[in-house]
Nucleic acid binder design. Structure first.
Length: 579
DNA sequence: GCCGTTTTCGGCCCGACTGTTTTCAGTCG
Protein backbone atom coordinates (compact mmCIF):
# COMPACT_ATOMS: atom_id res chain seq x y z
CA UNK A 1 0.00 0.00 0.00
CA UNK A 2 1.29 3.41 -0.95
CA UNK A 3 2.30 5.86 1.71
CA UNK A 4 -0.58 8.02 2.79
CA UNK A 5 -0.50 11.71 3.59
CA UNK A 6 -0.08 10.96 7.26
CA UNK A 7 3.00 8.77 6.68
CA UNK A 8 4.64 11.43 4.59
CA UNK A 9 3.90 14.11 7.16
CA UNK A 10 5.09 11.98 10.06
CA UNK A 11 8.30 11.04 8.25
CA UNK A 12 8.97 14.63 7.33
CA UNK A 13 8.52 15.78 10.91
CA UNK A 14 10.84 13.00 12.08
CA UNK A 15 13.46 14.12 9.59
CA UNK A 16 13.21 17.73 10.74
CA UNK A 17 13.45 16.68 14.36
CA UNK A 18 16.55 14.63 13.69
CA UNK A 19 18.02 17.51 11.74
CA UNK A 20 17.36 19.76 14.72
CA UNK A 21 19.06 17.46 17.19
CA UNK A 22 22.05 16.79 14.97
CA UNK A 23 22.45 20.49 14.28
CA UNK A 24 22.33 21.17 18.01
CA UNK A 25 25.42 18.99 18.34
CA UNK A 26 27.04 20.37 15.20
CA UNK A 27 26.69 23.91 16.49
CA UNK A 28 27.17 23.02 20.13
CA UNK A 29 24.27 25.23 21.04
CA UNK A 30 20.55 24.65 21.56
CA UNK A 31 19.96 28.34 20.90
CA UNK A 32 21.70 28.32 17.57
CA UNK A 33 19.66 30.21 15.05
CA UNK A 34 19.94 27.35 12.61
CA UNK A 35 18.51 24.99 15.21
CA UNK A 36 15.66 27.36 15.92
CA UNK A 37 14.97 27.73 12.22
CA UNK A 38 14.51 23.96 11.84
CA UNK A 39 12.26 23.90 14.87
CA UNK A 40 10.03 26.62 13.52
CA UNK A 41 9.93 24.92 10.13
CA UNK A 42 8.61 21.78 11.81
CA UNK A 43 5.87 23.78 13.51
CA UNK A 44 4.91 25.37 10.22
CA UNK A 45 4.57 21.93 8.62
CA UNK A 46 2.61 20.58 11.57
CA UNK A 47 0.18 23.47 11.50
CA UNK A 48 -0.38 23.37 7.74
CA UNK A 49 -3.86 21.99 7.15
CA UNK A 50 -3.36 20.89 3.54
CA UNK A 51 -1.09 18.35 1.92
CA UNK A 52 2.51 19.48 2.39
CA UNK A 53 3.78 17.01 -0.18
CA UNK A 54 1.95 18.90 -2.89
CA UNK A 55 3.72 22.20 -2.20
CA UNK A 56 6.51 23.46 -4.44
CA UNK A 57 9.66 25.06 -3.06
CA UNK A 58 8.16 28.49 -3.71
CA UNK A 59 4.91 27.58 -1.99
CA UNK A 60 6.76 26.06 0.96
CA UNK A 61 8.66 29.33 1.38
CA UNK A 62 5.40 31.15 1.79
CA UNK A 63 4.84 29.32 5.09
CA UNK A 64 6.15 31.39 7.95
CA UNK A 65 9.42 30.08 9.31
CA UNK A 66 10.38 28.23 6.14
CA UNK A 67 12.92 29.92 3.92
CA UNK A 68 14.82 29.01 0.81
CA UNK A 69 17.17 26.53 2.40
CA UNK A 70 14.65 24.56 4.43
CA UNK A 71 12.11 24.59 1.60
CA UNK A 72 14.72 23.02 -0.67
CA UNK A 73 15.56 20.40 1.98
CA UNK A 74 11.90 19.52 2.46
CA UNK A 75 11.40 19.14 -1.29
CA UNK A 76 14.60 17.10 -1.57
CA UNK A 77 13.35 14.73 1.07
CA UNK A 78 9.84 14.47 -0.38
CA UNK A 79 11.13 13.85 -3.91
CA UNK A 80 14.02 11.50 -3.20
CA UNK A 81 13.20 10.10 0.23
CA UNK A 82 16.65 11.24 1.31
CA UNK A 83 18.38 14.31 2.63
CA UNK A 84 22.07 14.79 1.89
CA UNK A 85 22.60 17.14 4.83
CA UNK A 86 21.14 14.58 7.20
CA UNK A 87 23.50 11.93 5.84
CA UNK A 88 26.51 14.16 6.52
CA UNK A 89 25.45 14.89 10.05
CA UNK A 90 24.64 11.26 10.80
CA UNK A 91 28.15 10.34 9.74
CA UNK A 92 29.54 12.78 12.27
CA UNK A 93 27.20 11.93 15.14
CA UNK A 94 26.03 8.35 15.62
CA UNK A 95 22.56 7.85 17.07
CA UNK A 96 23.99 6.67 20.39
CA UNK A 97 25.77 10.02 20.81
CA UNK A 98 22.64 11.96 19.89
CA UNK A 99 20.76 9.95 22.52
CA UNK A 100 22.99 11.52 25.17
CA UNK A 101 21.05 14.75 24.65
CA UNK A 102 18.11 13.05 26.35
CA UNK A 103 20.00 13.05 29.62
CA UNK A 104 18.62 15.85 31.77
CA UNK A 105 21.31 18.31 32.73
CA UNK A 106 23.48 17.35 29.81
CA UNK A 107 23.47 19.71 26.85
CA UNK A 108 25.36 19.75 23.58
CA UNK A 109 28.47 21.32 25.09
CA UNK A 110 28.67 18.63 27.73
CA UNK A 111 28.04 15.83 25.24
CA UNK A 112 30.76 17.10 22.91
CA UNK A 113 33.26 17.42 25.74
CA UNK A 114 32.50 13.97 27.12
CA UNK A 115 32.97 12.54 23.67
CA UNK A 116 36.23 14.29 22.85
CA UNK A 117 37.85 14.03 26.26
CA UNK A 118 36.58 10.69 27.52
CA UNK A 119 35.49 8.96 24.34
CA UNK A 120 31.90 8.66 25.59
CA UNK A 121 29.82 7.47 22.61
CA UNK A 122 26.67 6.15 24.26
CA UNK A 123 24.56 6.01 27.40
CA UNK A 124 26.42 2.87 28.43
CA UNK A 125 29.75 4.64 28.00
CA UNK A 126 28.44 7.48 30.12
CA UNK A 127 27.26 5.12 32.86
CA UNK A 128 30.70 3.54 32.94
CA UNK A 129 32.50 6.87 33.01
CA UNK A 130 30.29 8.06 35.85
CA UNK A 131 30.79 4.82 37.78
CA UNK A 132 34.55 5.15 37.38
CA UNK A 133 34.37 8.79 38.54
CA UNK A 134 36.05 10.01 35.41
CA UNK A 135 33.90 13.11 35.02
CA UNK A 136 35.05 14.95 38.11
CA UNK A 137 38.47 15.58 36.62
CA UNK A 138 36.98 17.07 33.48
CA UNK A 139 36.92 20.82 32.89
CA UNK A 140 33.42 22.17 33.46
CA UNK A 141 32.40 19.12 35.46
CA UNK A 142 32.98 18.30 39.10
CA UNK A 143 32.11 15.79 41.77
CA UNK A 144 28.69 17.30 42.23
CA UNK A 145 27.66 17.26 38.58
CA UNK A 146 28.92 13.69 38.41
CA UNK A 147 26.67 12.72 41.31
CA UNK A 148 23.71 14.44 39.69
CA UNK A 149 24.29 12.61 36.44
CA UNK A 150 24.51 9.33 38.33
CA UNK A 151 21.08 10.05 39.82
CA UNK A 152 19.59 11.00 36.49
CA UNK A 153 20.99 7.90 34.79
CA UNK A 154 19.59 5.69 37.53
CA UNK A 155 16.19 7.31 37.12
CA UNK A 156 16.29 6.85 33.36
CA UNK A 157 17.19 3.19 33.74
CA UNK A 158 14.41 2.63 36.25
CA UNK A 159 11.54 4.08 34.28
CA UNK A 160 12.64 4.73 30.76
CA UNK A 161 12.99 8.24 29.48
CA UNK A 162 9.29 8.68 29.03
CA UNK A 163 7.32 11.78 29.56
CA UNK A 164 4.41 11.66 31.94
CA UNK A 165 1.02 10.93 30.33
CA UNK A 166 -1.64 13.52 30.95
CA UNK A 167 -3.76 10.92 32.75
CA UNK A 168 -1.09 10.89 35.48
CA UNK A 169 0.00 14.50 35.32
CA UNK A 170 -3.38 16.17 35.53
CA UNK A 171 -4.62 14.45 38.72
CA UNK A 172 -1.16 15.01 40.24
CA UNK A 173 -1.30 18.71 39.38
CA UNK A 174 -4.80 19.06 40.77
CA UNK A 175 -3.71 17.41 43.98
CA UNK A 176 -0.72 19.73 44.36
CA UNK A 177 -2.83 22.77 43.54
CA UNK A 178 -5.36 21.79 46.21
CA UNK A 179 -2.60 21.22 48.75
CA UNK A 180 -0.76 24.48 48.12
CA UNK A 181 -4.04 26.41 48.12
CA UNK A 182 -4.20 25.66 51.83
CA UNK A 183 -0.98 27.56 52.51
CA UNK A 184 -1.78 30.87 54.25
CA UNK A 185 -0.91 33.79 52.02
CA UNK A 186 -1.32 31.90 48.73
CA UNK A 187 -3.86 34.00 46.87
CA UNK A 188 -3.78 31.90 43.69
CA UNK A 189 -2.50 28.43 42.82
CA UNK A 190 -2.75 26.90 39.38
CA UNK A 191 -0.87 24.72 36.94
CA UNK A 192 0.67 26.04 33.75
CA UNK A 193 3.09 24.60 31.23
CA UNK A 194 2.24 21.97 28.65
CA UNK A 195 -0.41 20.60 30.98
CA UNK A 196 -2.41 23.83 30.77
CA UNK A 197 -1.99 23.67 27.01
CA UNK A 198 -3.46 20.18 27.29
CA UNK A 199 -0.58 18.29 25.72
CA UNK A 200 -0.94 14.50 25.72
CA UNK A 201 2.25 13.98 27.65
CA UNK A 202 4.22 16.43 29.73
CA UNK A 203 7.91 16.68 30.55
CA UNK A 204 7.14 18.18 33.94
CA UNK A 205 4.30 19.72 35.90
CA UNK A 206 4.52 23.49 36.35
CA UNK A 207 2.66 24.95 39.31
CA UNK A 208 2.44 28.66 39.89
CA UNK A 209 1.58 30.28 43.21
CA UNK A 210 0.82 33.93 43.85
CA UNK A 211 2.02 34.78 47.35
CA UNK A 212 3.99 37.51 49.04
CA UNK A 213 6.20 35.05 50.89
CA UNK A 214 7.64 32.06 49.09
CA UNK A 215 9.12 30.02 51.92
CA UNK A 216 5.87 28.59 53.38
CA UNK A 217 4.79 27.51 49.89
CA UNK A 218 8.09 25.79 49.18
CA UNK A 219 8.01 24.11 52.59
CA UNK A 220 4.53 22.79 51.89
CA UNK A 221 5.62 21.47 48.51
CA UNK A 222 8.70 19.55 49.59
CA UNK A 223 6.71 18.12 52.53
CA UNK A 224 4.13 16.46 50.28
CA UNK A 225 4.05 12.69 50.50
CA UNK A 226 4.34 12.25 46.73
CA UNK A 227 7.77 13.87 46.74
CA UNK A 228 10.74 11.58 46.35
CA UNK A 229 13.61 14.01 45.88
CA UNK A 230 14.23 17.75 45.85
CA UNK A 231 16.22 18.86 42.81
CA UNK A 232 16.24 22.61 43.26
CA UNK A 233 15.27 24.81 46.15
CA UNK A 234 15.52 28.50 45.31
CA UNK A 235 13.74 31.69 46.34
CA UNK A 236 11.27 31.64 43.47
CA UNK A 237 11.59 28.13 42.12
CA UNK A 238 11.55 24.70 43.67
CA UNK A 239 11.79 21.47 41.69
CA UNK A 240 10.97 18.04 43.03
CA UNK A 241 10.64 14.56 41.59
CA UNK A 242 7.63 12.48 42.60
CA UNK A 243 7.92 8.83 43.51
CA UNK A 244 6.52 7.97 40.12
CA UNK A 245 9.32 9.98 38.55
CA UNK A 246 7.46 13.08 37.41
CA UNK A 247 9.26 16.36 37.87
CA UNK A 248 7.25 19.16 39.44
CA UNK A 249 8.38 22.79 39.29
CA UNK A 250 6.77 25.23 41.70
CA UNK A 251 7.22 28.96 41.18
CA UNK A 252 6.12 31.64 43.58
CA UNK A 253 5.37 35.07 42.15
CA UNK A 254 4.11 38.33 43.58
CA UNK A 255 0.32 38.56 43.20
CA UNK A 256 0.47 41.65 40.99
CA UNK A 257 2.74 39.77 38.55
CA UNK A 258 0.45 36.78 38.19
CA UNK A 259 -0.65 37.43 34.62
CA UNK A 260 2.86 37.84 33.29
CA UNK A 261 3.97 34.72 35.16
CA UNK A 262 1.04 32.62 33.93
CA UNK A 263 1.71 33.68 30.37
CA UNK A 264 5.39 32.99 30.67
CA UNK A 265 5.12 29.59 32.34
CA UNK A 266 2.26 28.37 30.17
CA UNK A 267 4.26 28.80 27.02
CA UNK A 268 4.71 27.34 24.62
CA UNK A 269 8.20 28.65 24.38
CA UNK A 270 7.68 29.42 20.71
CA UNK A 271 4.48 31.30 21.49
CA UNK A 272 6.32 33.33 24.13
CA UNK A 273 9.16 34.16 21.81
CA UNK A 274 6.68 35.50 19.27
CA UNK A 275 4.99 37.60 21.95
CA UNK A 276 8.31 39.06 23.08
CA UNK A 277 9.26 39.92 19.53
CA UNK A 278 5.89 41.58 19.20
CA UNK A 279 6.55 43.48 22.42
CA UNK A 280 9.93 44.70 21.18
CA UNK A 281 8.40 45.92 17.94
CA UNK A 282 6.13 48.10 20.06
CA UNK A 283 8.90 49.45 22.25
CA UNK A 284 8.10 47.09 25.12
CA UNK A 285 9.89 44.19 26.73
CA UNK A 286 8.10 41.15 28.08
CA UNK A 287 9.40 38.83 30.78
CA UNK A 288 7.83 36.69 33.50
CA UNK A 289 7.26 39.75 35.67
CA UNK A 290 5.65 42.27 33.39
CA UNK A 291 5.18 43.87 30.03
CA UNK A 292 7.15 47.11 30.39
CA UNK A 293 8.41 50.00 28.35
CA UNK A 294 11.85 49.24 26.96
CA UNK A 295 13.26 52.70 27.64
CA UNK A 296 11.79 53.65 31.00
CA UNK A 297 10.88 50.28 32.50
CA UNK A 298 7.40 51.59 33.18
CA UNK A 299 5.00 48.67 33.65
CA UNK A 300 2.34 48.46 30.96
CA UNK A 301 0.52 45.30 32.07
CA UNK A 302 1.15 42.33 34.34
CA UNK A 303 -1.82 41.38 36.53
CA UNK A 304 -3.70 39.30 33.98
CA UNK A 305 -2.85 37.51 30.78
CA UNK A 306 -5.72 39.30 29.08
CA UNK A 307 -4.26 42.72 29.92
CA UNK A 308 -0.93 41.76 28.42
CA UNK A 309 -2.47 40.41 25.23
CA UNK A 310 -4.57 43.55 24.99
CA UNK A 311 -1.53 45.78 25.38
CA UNK A 312 0.06 43.83 22.52
CA UNK A 313 -3.01 44.47 20.40
CA UNK A 314 -4.37 40.93 20.66
CA UNK A 315 -7.47 39.28 22.08
CA UNK A 316 -6.98 36.66 24.79
CA UNK A 317 -5.57 33.50 23.25
CA UNK A 318 -6.75 30.32 24.99
CA UNK A 319 -3.87 28.26 26.44
CA UNK A 320 -4.69 25.23 24.28
CA UNK A 321 -3.89 27.23 21.16
CA UNK A 322 -0.54 28.64 22.29
CA UNK A 323 1.74 26.53 20.12
CA UNK A 324 2.87 29.12 17.60
CA UNK A 325 0.94 27.32 14.94
CA UNK A 326 -0.67 30.42 13.50
CA UNK A 327 -2.74 31.43 16.54
CA UNK A 328 -1.06 34.82 16.99
CA UNK A 329 -1.64 35.71 13.36
CA UNK A 330 -5.23 34.44 13.62
CA UNK A 331 -5.76 36.49 16.77
CA UNK A 332 -4.48 39.55 14.98
CA UNK A 333 -7.02 39.02 12.19
CA UNK A 334 -9.78 38.38 14.72
CA UNK A 335 -9.98 34.87 13.33
CA UNK A 336 -9.31 32.67 16.38
CA UNK A 337 -11.35 29.47 16.31
CA UNK A 338 -14.63 29.71 18.17
CA UNK A 339 -14.74 28.13 21.62
CA UNK A 340 -16.79 25.01 22.19
CA UNK A 341 -19.52 25.64 24.72
CA UNK A 342 -23.06 24.55 25.51
CA UNK A 343 -22.50 20.81 25.34
CA UNK A 344 -25.98 19.33 25.20
CA UNK A 345 -25.43 15.64 25.54
CA UNK A 346 -23.17 12.62 25.83
CA UNK A 347 -23.14 9.62 23.50
CA UNK A 348 -20.75 7.17 25.09
CA UNK A 349 -21.56 6.25 28.68
CA UNK A 350 -21.43 2.95 30.57
CA UNK A 351 -23.38 1.60 33.54
CA UNK A 352 -23.08 -1.47 35.75
CA UNK A 353 -24.60 -3.47 32.91
CA UNK A 354 -21.11 -3.45 31.39
CA UNK A 355 -18.64 -5.58 33.32
CA UNK A 356 -16.37 -2.56 33.76
CA UNK A 357 -19.09 0.01 34.56
CA UNK A 358 -19.32 1.13 38.18
CA UNK A 359 -22.41 3.33 38.43
CA UNK A 360 -26.04 2.31 38.28
CA UNK A 361 -28.16 3.55 35.38
CA UNK A 362 -30.18 5.79 37.71
CA UNK A 363 -27.05 7.53 39.02
CA UNK A 364 -25.68 8.09 35.54
CA UNK A 365 -28.97 9.57 34.34
CA UNK A 366 -29.17 11.82 37.41
CA UNK A 367 -25.62 13.05 36.80
CA UNK A 368 -26.43 13.84 33.18
CA UNK A 369 -29.56 15.69 34.27
CA UNK A 370 -27.51 17.68 36.77
CA UNK A 371 -25.27 18.78 33.92
CA UNK A 372 -28.28 20.14 32.06
CA UNK A 373 -28.00 17.65 29.20
CA UNK A 374 -30.87 17.34 26.75
CA UNK A 375 -29.73 14.01 25.30
CA UNK A 376 -27.99 11.02 26.83
CA UNK A 377 -27.13 7.78 25.06
CA UNK A 378 -26.49 4.83 27.36
CA UNK A 379 -23.96 2.67 25.54
CA UNK A 380 -22.88 -0.42 27.41
CA UNK A 381 -20.57 -2.98 25.86
CA UNK A 382 -22.00 -5.49 23.42
CA UNK A 383 -21.18 -9.16 23.70
CA UNK A 384 -18.05 -8.93 21.54
CA UNK A 385 -15.85 -7.67 24.38
CA UNK A 386 -14.92 -9.17 27.72
CA UNK A 387 -17.01 -6.56 29.53
CA UNK A 388 -19.95 -7.02 27.17
CA UNK A 389 -23.33 -8.56 27.81
CA UNK A 390 -25.93 -10.61 26.00
CA UNK A 391 -29.29 -9.67 24.58
CA UNK A 392 -31.35 -10.32 27.70
CA UNK A 393 -29.42 -7.88 29.86
CA UNK A 394 -29.77 -5.20 27.21
CA UNK A 395 -33.50 -5.81 26.78
CA UNK A 396 -33.91 -5.50 30.53
CA UNK A 397 -31.97 -2.25 30.42
CA UNK A 398 -34.21 -1.01 27.60
CA UNK A 399 -37.26 -1.42 29.81
CA UNK A 400 -35.61 0.46 32.65
CA UNK A 401 -34.63 3.27 30.31
CA UNK A 402 -38.19 3.51 29.03
CA UNK A 403 -39.42 3.84 32.60
CA UNK A 404 -36.86 6.52 33.40
CA UNK A 405 -37.83 8.37 30.23
CA UNK A 406 -41.44 8.55 31.42
CA UNK A 407 -40.24 10.17 34.63
CA UNK A 408 -38.01 12.61 32.79
CA UNK A 409 -40.62 13.76 30.33
CA UNK A 410 -39.25 16.31 27.88
CA UNK A 411 -36.38 17.42 30.10
CA UNK A 412 -33.89 14.99 28.59
CA UNK A 413 -34.07 12.36 25.86
CA UNK A 414 -32.66 8.99 26.87
CA UNK A 415 -31.34 6.89 24.02
CA UNK A 416 -30.86 3.20 24.48
CA UNK A 417 -27.56 2.65 22.76
CA UNK A 418 -24.79 0.12 22.64
CA UNK A 419 -21.04 0.09 22.04
CA UNK A 420 -20.53 -2.54 19.41
CA UNK A 421 -17.21 -4.30 19.01
CA UNK A 422 -15.58 -4.22 15.60
CA UNK A 423 -14.26 -7.69 14.86
CA UNK A 424 -10.98 -8.36 13.11
CA UNK A 425 -12.75 -8.36 9.75
CA UNK A 426 -15.27 -5.64 10.55
CA UNK A 427 -18.07 -7.89 11.79
CA UNK A 428 -20.33 -6.39 14.47
CA UNK A 429 -22.16 -7.96 17.41
CA UNK A 430 -25.59 -9.65 17.31
CA UNK A 431 -27.42 -9.40 14.00
CA UNK A 432 -28.66 -6.50 11.94
CA UNK A 433 -32.23 -6.96 13.13
CA UNK A 434 -31.23 -6.76 16.80
CA UNK A 435 -28.87 -3.83 16.19
CA UNK A 436 -31.70 -1.94 14.49
CA UNK A 437 -33.66 -1.97 17.73
CA UNK A 438 -31.19 0.39 19.42
CA UNK A 439 -31.61 4.16 19.38
CA UNK A 440 -27.90 4.74 18.94
CA UNK A 441 -25.01 2.44 17.98
CA UNK A 442 -21.36 3.30 18.18
CA UNK A 443 -18.70 0.85 17.10
CA UNK A 444 -15.13 0.60 18.31
CA UNK A 445 -11.99 -1.51 18.15
CA UNK A 446 -11.07 -3.38 21.33
CA UNK A 447 -8.69 -6.06 20.10
CA UNK A 448 -6.47 -7.22 17.22
CA UNK A 449 -4.32 -4.13 17.61
CA UNK A 450 -1.46 -5.48 15.53
CA UNK A 451 -3.14 -5.94 12.17
CA UNK A 452 -1.46 -4.23 9.21
CA UNK A 453 -2.84 -0.93 8.07
CA UNK A 454 -4.91 -2.21 5.15
CA UNK A 455 -6.76 -4.62 7.40
CA UNK A 456 -7.25 -2.13 10.24
CA UNK A 457 -8.61 0.43 7.81
CA UNK A 458 -10.79 -2.12 6.03
CA UNK A 459 -12.35 -3.45 9.24
CA UNK A 460 -13.33 0.00 10.40
CA UNK A 461 -14.64 1.09 7.01
CA UNK A 462 -16.63 -2.15 6.91
CA UNK A 463 -18.20 -1.26 10.26
CA UNK A 464 -18.98 2.24 9.01
CA UNK A 465 -20.99 0.76 6.14
CA UNK A 466 -23.36 -0.87 8.59
CA UNK A 467 -26.61 1.10 8.53
CA UNK A 468 -26.93 1.08 12.33
CA UNK A 469 -23.54 2.60 13.12
CA UNK A 470 -23.73 6.33 13.87
CA UNK A 471 -20.26 6.83 15.29
CA UNK A 472 -16.82 5.21 15.47
CA UNK A 473 -15.52 5.17 19.02
CA UNK A 474 -11.85 5.80 19.97
CA UNK A 475 -10.55 5.36 16.46
CA UNK A 476 -6.94 4.49 17.29
CA UNK A 477 -7.66 2.49 20.47
CA UNK A 478 -4.41 3.86 21.91
CA UNK A 479 -3.59 4.32 25.56
CA UNK A 480 -1.35 7.36 25.98
CA UNK A 481 1.88 6.27 27.58
CA UNK A 482 0.82 2.65 27.22
CA UNK A 483 -0.48 1.06 24.07
CA UNK A 484 0.28 2.69 20.73
CA UNK A 485 -2.63 3.35 18.42
CA UNK A 486 -3.57 0.92 15.68
CA UNK A 487 -2.18 1.62 12.24
CA UNK A 488 -5.02 3.11 10.25
CA UNK A 489 -5.31 5.21 7.11
CA UNK A 490 -6.96 8.30 8.54
CA UNK A 491 -7.74 9.86 5.15
CA UNK A 492 -9.60 6.72 4.12
CA UNK A 493 -11.57 6.92 7.37
CA UNK A 494 -12.45 10.56 6.68
CA UNK A 495 -13.58 9.58 3.19
CA UNK A 496 -15.80 6.83 4.59
CA UNK A 497 -17.12 9.12 7.33
CA UNK A 498 -18.17 11.66 4.71
CA UNK A 499 -19.64 9.03 2.42
CA UNK A 500 -21.69 7.22 5.04
CA UNK A 501 -22.42 10.11 7.36
CA UNK A 502 -20.76 8.36 10.29
CA UNK A 503 -19.37 10.57 13.05
CA UNK A 504 -16.00 10.21 14.74
CA UNK A 505 -15.82 10.19 18.51
CA UNK A 506 -13.62 12.60 20.43
CA UNK A 507 -13.14 10.48 23.52
CA UNK A 508 -12.47 12.56 26.63
CA UNK A 509 -10.97 9.81 28.76
CA UNK A 510 -7.48 11.09 29.61
CA UNK A 511 -5.70 7.82 28.84
CA UNK A 512 -7.31 7.84 25.39
CA UNK A 513 -7.98 11.36 24.04
CA UNK A 514 -8.94 9.56 20.87
CA UNK A 515 -9.25 10.78 18.11
CA UNK A 516 -6.04 12.62 18.77
CA UNK A 517 -5.38 16.29 18.23
CA UNK A 518 -3.42 15.41 15.09
CA UNK A 519 -6.38 13.65 13.56
CA UNK A 520 -8.67 16.49 14.61
CA UNK A 521 -6.38 19.03 12.95
CA UNK A 522 -6.40 17.06 9.74
CA UNK A 523 -10.14 16.53 9.85
CA UNK A 524 -11.22 20.02 10.78
CA UNK A 525 -11.68 21.07 7.16
CA UNK A 526 -13.38 17.84 6.10
CA UNK A 527 -17.13 17.41 6.17
CA UNK A 528 -16.86 15.08 9.11
CA UNK A 529 -19.00 15.31 12.24
CA UNK A 530 -17.23 14.94 15.56
CA UNK A 531 -18.93 13.95 18.81
CA UNK A 532 -17.46 14.71 22.21
CA UNK A 533 -17.92 11.91 24.70
CA UNK A 534 -16.88 11.08 28.24
CA UNK A 535 -16.73 7.28 27.82
CA UNK A 536 -17.69 7.43 31.51
CA UNK A 537 -17.58 4.22 33.50
CA UNK A 538 -18.74 6.04 36.62
CA UNK A 539 -21.29 8.82 37.08
CA UNK A 540 -18.58 11.26 38.17
CA UNK A 541 -16.71 10.70 34.92
CA UNK A 542 -19.31 12.45 32.79
CA UNK A 543 -17.19 15.52 33.45
CA UNK A 544 -14.50 14.11 31.16
CA UNK A 545 -16.40 15.50 28.20
CA UNK A 546 -14.63 18.77 28.98
CA UNK A 547 -11.33 17.10 28.09
CA UNK A 548 -12.78 16.09 24.75
CA UNK A 549 -13.81 19.72 24.22
CA UNK A 550 -10.30 20.94 25.08
CA UNK A 551 -8.80 18.54 22.59
CA UNK A 552 -11.14 19.72 19.85
CA UNK A 553 -10.36 23.34 20.71
CA UNK A 554 -6.65 22.58 20.58
CA UNK A 555 -7.12 21.49 17.01
CA UNK A 556 -9.21 24.53 16.15
CA UNK A 557 -12.26 22.46 15.22
CA UNK A 558 -15.24 24.72 14.61
CA UNK A 559 -18.20 24.08 16.96
CA UNK A 560 -20.42 23.60 13.91
CA UNK A 561 -18.54 20.36 13.25
CA UNK A 562 -19.24 19.18 16.80
CA UNK A 563 -22.66 17.56 17.11
CA UNK A 564 -22.92 18.08 20.90
CA UNK A 565 -23.13 21.82 20.43
CA UNK A 566 -26.16 21.64 18.14
CA UNK A 567 -29.57 22.51 19.52
CA UNK A 568 -31.46 19.64 21.09
CA UNK A 569 -33.82 18.96 18.19
CA UNK A 570 -31.06 18.81 15.59
CA UNK A 571 -28.89 16.71 17.87
CA UNK A 572 -31.65 14.21 18.54
CA UNK A 573 -32.56 14.00 14.88
CA UNK A 574 -28.94 13.29 14.03
CA UNK A 575 -28.58 10.59 16.68
CA UNK A 576 -31.74 8.78 15.61
CA UNK A 577 -31.17 9.07 11.88
CA UNK A 578 -31.17 5.80 9.98
CA UNK A 579 -29.71 4.84 6.66
C1' DG B 1 18.54 29.58 8.71
C1' DC B 2 15.01 33.38 8.56
C1' DC B 3 13.57 37.92 7.76
C1' DG B 4 12.55 43.25 6.72
C1' DT B 5 7.05 50.14 9.55
C1' DT B 6 14.84 51.67 11.11
C1' DT B 7 17.32 46.41 7.56
C1' DT B 8 18.72 42.09 1.56
C1' DC B 9 22.89 42.48 6.14
C1' DG B 10 22.90 42.04 10.70
C1' DG B 11 20.25 41.24 13.76
C1' DC B 12 17.62 37.31 16.06
C1' DC B 13 13.63 36.67 23.74
C1' DC B 14 14.54 36.41 28.65
C1' DG B 15 15.83 35.09 33.25
C1' DA B 16 16.71 31.46 37.24
C1' DC B 17 19.52 28.14 39.04
C1' DT B 18 23.65 25.30 39.54
C1' DG B 19 28.29 24.23 39.72
C1' DT B 20 32.61 25.42 39.05
C1' DT B 21 33.75 29.61 39.02
C1' DT B 22 36.42 34.16 41.53
C1' DT B 23 32.86 36.71 37.11
C1' DC B 24 30.63 33.03 34.25
C1' DA B 25 29.14 28.97 31.22
C1' DG B 26 25.81 25.56 30.65
C1' DT B 27 21.25 24.06 30.93
C1' DC B 28 16.50 24.65 31.23
C1' DG B 29 11.99 26.32 30.28
Amino acid sequence: MADTKQDVLRDLLDVLEELTRLTTLEEGDVQSFRVRAYESAARAIEGYPGDVAKLSVTELQKLEGIGKSTAAKIREYLDTGKLAKLGELRAKFPASVVALLNVQGLGPKGVLRLRSELGVQSLDDLRRAVAEQKLRGLKGFGAKSEEKLAHTLARMAAQGEGRTPISVALPLAERIVAHLSEVPGASFVGYCGSLRRFCETVGDVDVIVAATYAAPVMDAMVAMSVVDRVLVRGDTKTSVVTRRGTQVDVRVVQPEQLGAAMLYFTGSKAHNVKLRQRALARGFTLNEYALAELETGRVIARETEGAIYAALGLPFIPPVLREDMGEIEAAERGALPRQISDIRGDFHVHTTVSGDGRSDLGDVVAAARARGYRVLAITDHAEGTLSGVGRDALLEQRARIAALQRELGDAMALLHGVELNIGADGALDYDLEFRRQFDFCLASVHDHFDLPRERQTARIVQAMRDPTVRMIGHLSARMIGGRPGIDVDVDAIFDAAEEHGVALEVNGGLPRLDVSVDVLRRGRDRKVTFVLTSDAHHATELDRVRFAALNAERAGVDPERVANTWDADRLLAWARARR
